[in-house]
Design a protein around this nucleic acid. Structure first.
Lengths: 205, 205
DNA sequence: CCTTCTTTAACCGCATCGGTTAATTACCAT
DNA sequence: ATGGTAATTAACCGATGCGGTTAAAGAAGG
């Protein structure tokens, strides 16, 4: 790719990145036209081809960028350092909301990339996914002791349930074209409070 | 549309319907080619145009079919007649799984239709959606008494959480191309049991 | 063999695609 | 202003894919 892209003003860089996330997340790779991405970014198709020599190069760049952004956000959120599960959720949620606000299409794009089957890009993507495999989410639960929760609770089921509920909620919200980050934050706080009221041990040890 | 379609053997009718659900659920209306639908249904493009005179007609037919199938399935499931919430969930879930098994793309198609913005079909779809508005899901909770659950539980939050968790779970599963209905049924049963263990009142009244 | 119905291959005109070229604009030091 | 350089775009190209049509091949029955 053309390194001049990085000397562009940051807003313009992000406009292009977000346009790419948006278009590639809503269509398959093959049916995501460069012209549509350029239009969404507010530039001409020619200029887009000036920074990225072809479609595949842009796609792979977006995928790497997506992975890097996500990893950075999780690291910086501090959610891994917590010992209280609900605090972890809150920190992780705040990180996710901030990410959504800044890169609205990132989440859906990551999903699409993961399940993209087009042989033009599939192989190259799989290679870089393997590199990321070390960042497992599943290990999250290991830091917490059962004493924090109501006795007899199936911790793994609890965690999966919370995860799916947030995914289902976000999926519902994502469908609407105007997503209100403040509303989402409020809803999430309510949700976490609810989980606390249901799952957390009430009596002192 | 050509009424001869209905005198086709049922398997062939469903093959065409499923092909339509599948293709229209994965692309926008505009980017869903008739040729791809025909290929997925195992027939030629010409034959597809023989039964449906143009793309819009097929699309609207699929949407009406989708709505009719869903309503029938819910009515026949008997889930509305239950007084035990978890029994209701189980019955509703079984109905949904059977639907998924028979029409794998139906759920995702309904979503796509609902949020489709293409002016070529948007207006016509909205009209028929309004007719369906009487079938509200939200009323489900009204049939149940708080005494069945642990004291102090926020019933609305509980219900929303369960709903979002199922949506999140299904969304996750839907991404994979081969969805195993048996596995999903097993997972759902586990989920419902978990909810019962968490939300249901344990001590006799 | 003739008729009728089902199914398809081949085609048409048009739009769109990825990508290139050449020209236009904006900027900036002189 | 002026000349040079870098940012940006309009116009274009060959190829492909689109919705839809036409004419002909296949299949079935008498």
């Amino acid at each position: 790719m053309n390194e001049k892209f990085f000397s562009l003003p940051k807003e313009k860089q992000e406009a292009i990145i977000n346009a790419g996330f948006c278009v590639f997340s809503q269509n398959s790779y093959k049916k995501s036209p460069m012209s549509e991405i350029a239009a969404a970014a507010g530039i001409s198709k020619s200029l887009l081809f000036h920074y990225f020599h072809n479609k595949k190069e842009l796609y792979l760049f977006l995928w790497e960028t997506c992975a890097r952004i996500t990893i950075n956000a999780l690291d910086e959120s501090g959610c891994y350092l917590q010992t209280d599960l609900f605090e972890t959720l809150y920190k992780g949620m705040r990180a996710k909301i901030q990410l959504m606000r800044r890169y609205p299409g990132l989440g859906a794009f990551a999903m699409k990339v993961y399940y993209e089957k087009d042989p033009a890009v599939c192989a190259d993507v799989q290679k870089s996914i393997e590199k990321l495999a070390s960042y497992k989410i599943n290990a999250t639960l290991l830091n917490f002791t059962p004493e924090q929760f109501v006795p007899g609770l199936d911790l793994e089921m609890m965690y999966q349930n919370m995860y799916w509920a947030t995914e289902g909620y976000l999926w519902e919200k994502f469908q609407q074209d105007s997503l209100d980050a403040d509303e989402i934050e409020r809803d999430f706080l309510k949700m976490i409070d609810f989980w606390k009221s249901v799952y957390a041990r009430k009596e002192p040890l």
